[in-house]
Structures are given as structure tokens and as C-alpha cells.
Design a protein around this nucleic acid. Structure first.
Lengths: 271, 271
DNA sequence: CTTGACTCTCCAGTAGCTGGAGACTCCATA
DNA sequence: TATGGAGTCTCCAGCTACTGGAGAGTCAAG
């Protein structure tokens, strides 16, 4: 019979961990002195402890290990659990590796630029949205602003409140300033499928804008400098080896008269 | 000004996380109603939030992010931090990958055997130990037991108590049952460097048995079946792509008269 | 009997939230 | 004006596998 300190030296597991295993019932001492509370172990417990350490090393939680040891699982059942773990772990490794890649591309970016960009790009999972939308070919960029106002002018009186900021989608495969295939989308509840014509005579369509992973950044300045944001996004996509998977979106997060100036969120679906 | 729920919808960060960021001062709301406690946010905070998310995505802790944002670190300083992170993360990835490899080799082992082995093998970091030791060529395996007893018979009367169970080292490059180059080692405090001759006339040497990573398993049965343990260790080493890096050790963890039978720990230095 | 090494229990802390309890607040409708 | 429902508040516990510390008790040797 060893006291906890001696046993700890033999099995090379810290005393605090042995006490913890004893507390959670994973490796109770073979005897406990009822008056002093001293825990007593013996060499015969080493196989169990070794099993614990081996399974822990495979990434199982102490809970799982406890049920494996106490239900005396068959090899087949253990194999099943390990298969699950294996899948989970290879996903985790891939994710970690992706994160490491992001750090590396970020470092390359910093080193090539010498300074930090004003834009932070983040990958987000965006939900699909029910929208009412207007789509047309705009002859110049400023035309988009009038379309947005026109749309609101139809929705508000009809009692339709967008459930999120309105945004535009740019459907052109390439950018031509005098021929912009733009769609203005107003997120609405799923049961709103129609709206009256706009004052300027435009008609709303109803559809679901698909969700998915998107690279997102914030442009906090006038619309005339928005190409900087697109530039930063483009660089980021390239550095991370991602490509566009749909039309870019621009969400207008401020009221037109906001004293802080306009703020636009740009989203590019990826992969 | 948005309430927390609206802001959460816009930035796609859970309300609970926003509250947490507000609590730790990382992203305080732009205003808080003193009577109701309601937090109010505005679109102008999105760039900061995006920076937070981007840095978090690179693996920085919220603490680190806070000091980066509030001390307005230069690109060079950020680069330094990221370099550190990068090193740390690639170590973590390698470790995870190694763990995944262990799971895979374990699965292969289970599948090839169809049942679980009685031996669990664990990699441990073993400390170097000061020992007094006897070394000689044993003409048969049972000779080792008499050597151990002979050593104790010299140490005990001299007042030298081993600080850990005694163990043997097998120096032969290959095993021959009638010619075993064995060393019996008794761990002692660093200031004990000599001991009297044994009753049978053997002389102790003093040395440091080097530590390092070792594959460890427990054999809980008579010495005549110890080759099973070595077999399991050999398979494990092969499955994990490791080789021996020194003489195997056997530590005798039970007294000769233990009612539970003898328990032996076998350690093989690796890599 | 003292000393020093060892052990005990209990609690807080770790990172970044999440979820719940119980109490308010806000807004729109009846 | 009352009410209902959705949203919000604060505080606290929980997650993992321990670690470290406080304060008290135990054991063996001198």
C-alpha cells in the first residue's frame, strides 16, 4: 500500500490529478483511512491507470473513459468510439491547419504592405433571407441610391418593415460604371411575398437570397472610396486561396442622414 | 442606435457574446440607459467588432486583442505577436496530428487483432535518476532475482533506502537466455555515491540513468510471461513508427511476497 | 515533544462564452 | 389605460481537467 505521494512517483501522475481521479470515481484508492482521510493505493491499480492514460492520450474525455472501463466495452464498441473520435479529430486538425494558414497569409500581407490595412475581413456564416427585391440595369452608380429610396417609399406606406438592413446585389460578371445589373433587396418575414409598385413604377420580386460562408468587411466612408474595400477583399481572398461563389452584396447600415457618415457592409460569398 | 438584439442580427454575433464583450470592456456599448441598463450600439462600432473577430480568428485571446486595440499597436508589433502565435500553433497542429496518428494506429491494431490487448502502452517523460547499480552477465533469467536480493542485503544494513522501486536494465543488443548483460539499479538521493560490497561480494557502481521519453507498460503476472508485454510494446513501437533509444528497463513494483502477485513496469526509451 | 514532510478538504481560477432564473422595460394593440 | 409578448437586464452556474493555495490535521524520526 502506497500513500498518494509515493504512488504519484511510481506512476508519474501528479498528486492533484490522482486526487481528482479519486474524486470523480475514475480511480478510487484501494483504501481510505476513515479517520485521517489518507488515500492508499497499490501497484495492482497501475493497469487501470495505464488504460486511463492511454485512452486519454487518444483524446477521449474522462467521462468517456469512465464508461469504457466500467462497462467493459468490447473491442468493437471501442472501435466505434475511436472511429467517431478520429473523424472529429481530423476535422479539428484541418480547422487548426486552416487557422494557421490564415495567420501565415496575414503575416505575408503585413510584410508585403509594411502597414496594417484599414479593413478587417472576417469569414461569417450568413443565413438565407426572404427578400422583396427590385432589379434593373443602372446607368450610373448614383442611380442605386434613388432605387433604394424608391423601394422604401413603396414599402413603408404598405406597412412592410424590413427585418434587417436593406442590401444590394451586383450581378455583373464584371464592373461597368454605365451598365450595372443591380438588385436591391429588402429582408422581410417569410409570409410577406408581395408589395405594391413603387412610386416610380418599379415592381417587387420575391425570392430567397441564399446564405452560406461569406467574406465580410465594413466600409466606413463615402461610396466613392468603396473600391478600397473591394481591393482589400480581393487581396484577402487571394491570400486565403478562396474564390467568389455568387454576387457580392452591400448592406447599408446607416440612415442616409447619419451624422457619423455612411457605413456599408460588403459581403462576398466564397467557395 | 441599435438595441443589443438588432445589433446582434446585423453583426451576426450572439447577444450573449456581445454582453460578454461589454462586460470585459472589449466592446462597450456606445451608450447605456442608466435607468433600464439597456445597451445601445451603433453601426460605427462594427469596424472595431470586425477587428476583434478577425484577430480572434487568428487565435489571439480576448485579452491580447484588447491590448492590441487599445494600445493601437504598430504593424511591426502585431507581426511579432503573430509570429509567436504561429510558432505556438504549428506546434499545436503537429501535436494534434500526432494524436490523430495514434488513434489511427490504435484502430489498425484493434482491427488486425480482433480483440483488445491486455497491455496499454503509454508514452511518459521519465526523469533521470541517481542510482547505485550492480552489473554482470547472468547465466539464466532467475539469476536476476538473486542479484536483486543480494543488493538489498547490502543497502538496508548500511541505512540506504532506495527512493523509488529498484529496476533492471538489459544491455544486450539481442536476447540470449544464458548470457544476459543485466544491471540492477537502486535509485538513491544524489549525495549517496557509495555502498559496501554485497554479501555475495558484488560491488556497486554509481551513475545517472538518463531520462527521456519512454514507452511504458505494466505486466501483472509471473515473470515467465513477460515476453507478452515485450511483444505488445514491440507492436506498439512499430505501429507508432518509433524505435528503441536505449536499454529496456524493468521496474519491480511489488514486494516478493505480495499476495496480488508480482507487478513489473517495463520501460523502453524511444526516439 | 518538536520538527518537517506529507496529506486532507474546500475553494477559486483557468477561456469564452452559454443557458437559466427572476425581474424589468418597451411597444403595440384592445 | 390595461395587457400581453418580446426583448432586455443582472447574476450565477456550468463547461474541461485539472492546478494552486489556505488552513488544518497526520505521520515518522530525532
Amino acid at each position: 500500500m502506497y500513500r498518494i505521494g509515493e504512488f504519484s512517483k511510481i506512476c508519474r501522475v501528479p498528486v492533484s490529478a490522482l486526487r481528482y481521479y479519486s474524486d470523480i470515481g475514475l480511480l478510487p484508492p484501494v483504501a481510505t483511512d476513515p479517520s485521517s482521510g489518507y488515500r492508499y493505493y497499490e501497484a495492482g491499480q497501475l493497469p487501470r491507470l495505464n488504460r486511463i492514460l492511454a485512452l486519454k492520450d487518444l483524446g477521449l474525455s474522462l467521462d468517456e473513459i469512465g464508461s469504457i472501463l466500467d462497462n467493459d466495452l468490447s473491442a468493437a464498441e471501442l472501435r466505434g468510439m475511436l472511429r467517431l473520435k478520429q473523424a472529429e479529430m481530423s476535422r479539428a486538425v484541418a480547422e487548426q491547419q486552416a487557422q494557421l494558414d490564415r495567420v501565415e497569409s496575414r503575416l505575408r500581407l503585413i510584410e508585403s504592405e509594411g502597414e496594417m490595412s484599414d479593413y478587417e475581413i472576417v469569414l461569417k456564416e450568413i443565413d438565407a433571407q426572404h427578400v422583396l427585391s427590385l432589379r434593373e440595369i443602372a446607368p450610373e452608380p448614383s442611380h442605386v441610391g434613388t432605387m433604394i429610396g424608391d423601394g422604401f417609399a413603396a414599402l413603408m406606406p404598405a406597412g412592410i418593415m424590413p427585418t434587417a438592413p436593406c442590401f444590394s446585389l451586383y450581378h455583373d460578371p464584371e464592373f461597368k460604371p454605365d451598365h450595372i445589373d443591380v438588385e436591391i433587396a429588402y429582408p422581410v418575414p417569410a409570409d410577406v411575398t408581395t408589395a405594391p409598385q413603387t412610386p416610380a413604377g418599379r415592381s417587387f420580386g420575391h425570392r430567397i437570397v441564399p446564405g452560406g460562408k461569406m467574406a465580410v468587411t465594413i466600409h466606413q466612408a463615402g461610396y466613392d472610396t468603396i473600391d478600397q474595400a473591394y481591393g482589400a477583399l480581393g487581396k484577402w481572398l487571394e491570400a486565403n486561396g478562396l474564390g467568389m461563389a455568387g454576387p457580392p452584396q452591400e448592406a447599408y447600415l446607416t440612415a442616409p442622414d447619419d451624422p457619423g457618415g455612411p457605413i456599408t457592409e460588403i459581403r462576398i460569398p466564397v467557395e
